[in-house]
Amino acid sequence: MSEQYEYVPHLPLRRRVRDIASGAEGELMAVINENVSDTGLACWMELAYIRGASGLEFTTSVANVVPAVDGQACS
């Protein structure tokens, strides 16, 4: 049986990012290729783990992660 996850190198690790899906910002802690399936068929997805201001981490698709722009409106 294969692993359920693997770490993926990602350049903005430990940098401030924004999740465009939720608008939440935080520090990018890891990018992990995870098997998100709860069935027997593998369904792999790259998830970004972001630590918010509260200290709790949340996940989102890597496609939703953009650099945070401090003090400026994002367009």
Rank of each mutant, 00 (worst) to 15 (best):
Y7T: 14
E27W: 09
L13D: 04
P12R: 15
I32K: 02
D19S: 13
T39Q: 04
S2A: 10
R15N: 12
Y7G: 10
E3N: 12
N33Q: 00
G26L: 08
A24N: 13
D19R: 12
V8Y: 00
V17E: 04
E3T: 06
R18N: 12
V31A: 03
G40H: 07
Y5K: 11
N35L: 05
V17Q: 09
G26F: 06
A30E: 02
E27F: 03
R15A: 10
R18P: 08
G23H: 03
L13Y: 04
V31N: 01
Y7C: 09
P12L: 14
T39V: 02
V36G: 02
Y5I: 09
G26N: 06
E6G: 10
V31T: 04
R16N: 13
S2L: 09
V8G: 05
A24Q: 14
G26K: 04
G40Y: 08
R14D: 15
Q4R: 15
N33H: 01
S37Q: 03
S2F: 09
G26A: 09
V31W: 00
L13N: 06
R15L: 09
V8I: 15
E34M: 10
N33R: 01
R16L: 11
V31S: 00
S2P: 14
E3F: 04
V17P: 05
A30Y: 00
P9K: 08
T39M: 03
L28V: 01
R14A: 13
S2W: 09
A24G: 07
S22T: 15
H10T: 15
A21M: 05
R18W: 10
T39G: 06
N35S: 02
D38Q: 10
Q4F: 14
E34L: 01
V17T: 01
H10P: 03
Y7E: 14
Y7W: 12
A21G: 00
S37F: 01
V8E: 07
E27N: 02
G40V: 05
N33K: 02
V31G: 07
Y7N: 13
L28D: 06
H10M: 12
M1T: 07
G26S: 10
R16D: 12
V8F: 05
V31I: 05
E27R: 08
N35H: 00
V17C: 11
V8K: 11
V17G: 11
Q4Y: 14
H10I: 15
I20R: 01
P12W: 12
I32Y: 04
M1E: 11
G40Q: 07
L13A: 06
D38H: 03
P9F: 06
R14C: 11
E34Y: 00
I20F: 04
N33Y: 04
V31Q: 07
P9Y: 00
V36P: 07
I20W: 03
A21K: 12
V31M: 02
V31Y: 01
L13P: 06
A21C: 04
